[in-house]
Design a protein around this nucleic acid. Structure first.
Lengths: 176, 176
DNA sequence: CTCAATGTGAAGCGGACCTTCCGCTTCCAC
DNA sequence: GTGGAAGCGGAAGGTCCGCTTCACATTGAG
């Protein structure tokens, strides 16, 4: 593969990642190409169609997330959760949920997703047992709300919503 | 105005309200007509175009919200906030933010919005002074996150996100 | 009974987006 | 330096989808 081609492929992936994170799944191929400083034609030389681009990015992102989760199991669960939130806010990750409904999930993506779900559920339950996370919600519910909070376009680890949500997970006596 | 015409107009508004609340601003005119049990043509007899329909609904919704807010000023501020959240979850209200960016705001809508913003800011500040709402966030920030939490399509007053968020607003010692 | 008001939904229209295609440019092995 | 394969660009084509119109059928009120 020629050096410039490799460079351009990386630019495309980077631009797509950034735009998806910032503006959700509605970004057009033309916008991605433009953000990468390339023509649309180039984009299609590297990825046969939109679906291929999305799938490629989603798999890479999910794989990284799974590995991050696995690695963070060594920490105390609450630390691991905080870490996860920060990680998700830094990595342009919003796309993964935005994209969930956009294209049919490949087997690989489905497998990654269920692995991540399982790891996260385990982590949350440990946090409930060991770190005082509220127990009036199931791990699925908590995972779901973290998902909403984190995977907004433009979410940040220190924005008010995330902050308040994390604090709300640790209250000892929830409002009736 | 003929009786059936009035009835159909109400059906249209009701259907549009419900669909917007449930699925956001992307609902098509045809879906609205179908949900109202009418043809698209009828819809266009009552509203010259999509914008008119949206505007009409938005103004009615915002007016009701403003009046509700005004009325709730008599209560203790925390009660009023809880009340507001419940009100927003019951009323199909999600559309108002979904729609915010969709069509240029009419002067009337702009006025209503700023009235509501002012009322809400006042309420939040009172809750901070009198009811122990966390003071490390500005009233704009809190209003913003309430907005995100409440105006999701399908939001409910007792769903996990709303619950956790409200509890998170009352923590005495936020995480560093 | 009359007719104006109202309802209908298929068809027209427009715009946005994905994708293709082919002439031009760039890289790199020799 | 040079030939040619690989890569690039972006206008043009095709498709899809939602908004809007309109000619005709239906209905309600006097």
């Amino acid at each position: 593969m020629r050096a410039d081609a490799r460079r351009n492929r990386e630019r495309i992936v980077g631009a797509a990642l950034g735009l998806f994170a910032e503006r959700g799944a509605g970004v057009s191929m033309e916008e991605i190409a433009q953000a990468a400083g390339l023509g649309v034609g180039t984009l299609y030389r590297h990825f046969p169609d939109r679906h291929a681009l999305v799938e490629d990015i989603a798999e890479a992102t999910l794989t990284a997330l799974r590995d991050h989760l696995r690695a963070s199991l060594a920490q105390p669960p609450w630390e691991a959760l905080l870490n996860l939130v920060r990680y998700c806010a830094e990595q342009p990750l919003a796309l993964v949920t935005s994209l969930a409904g956009t294209t049919p999930a490949s087997p690989c993506r489905a497998r990654l997703t269920s692995e991540i779900d399982a790891l996260l559920a385990g982590l949350i339950e440990r946090a409930q047992d060991e770190d005082g996370i509220r127990r009036d919600l199931s791990s699925e519910q908590i995972a779901g709300l973290l998902n909403v909070a984190i995977c907004r376009p433009g979410a940040r680890a220190d924005d008010p919503l995330t902050t308040v949500l994390l604090d709300g997970l640790r209250v000892s006596r929830p409002t009736a």
